[in-house]
């Protein structure tokens, strides 16, 4: 799970996806792709973005949920706690 997390946030496109979900949670694949191209100049194919989302889902950072006929993507920051648990942000300097 740890490796999944670090691999997931190591990629700039995946970090941009998380940025956009934090801006507005619960987006369709279409909205995410539109935001990536218009706001970040990331013109990857929908298929490529889908694959990035799968990596983020495997790391628990994104949850995809169906709502009726639509599928929306939600941000989940919970797994990020593992980082500051492991390396506390307020750790004392020796």
């Amino acid at each position: 799970m740890d490796d999944d997390l670090y691999r997931a946030i190591a990629d700039p496109t995946r970090r941009a996806i998380l940025d956009e979900l934090v801006d507005r949670d619960g987006q369709s694949l279409f909205e995410l792709c539109s935001r990536l191209i218009m706001k970040h100049g990331i013109s990857s194919s929908r298929q490529a973005i889908s694959q990035h989302l799968e990596v983020l889902e495997a790391a628990g950072l994104v949850v995809a949920r169906r709502e009726g006929r639509y599928k929306f993507h939600w941000f989940n920051g919970e797994p990020l706690k593992a980082i500051t648990t492991r390396w506390p942000a307020n750790a004392k300097k020796r």
Binding site: R24, Q27, S28, F30, E31, S34, R35, M38, K39, F72
Partner: peptide, 14 residues
């Protein structure tokens, strides 16, 4: 499925 959103020089909604 998408509220009004600024996309570059456009505003779109779906």
């Amino acid at each position: 499925t998408q509220p009004p959103t600024e996309m570059g020089s456009m505003v779109t909604a779906v």
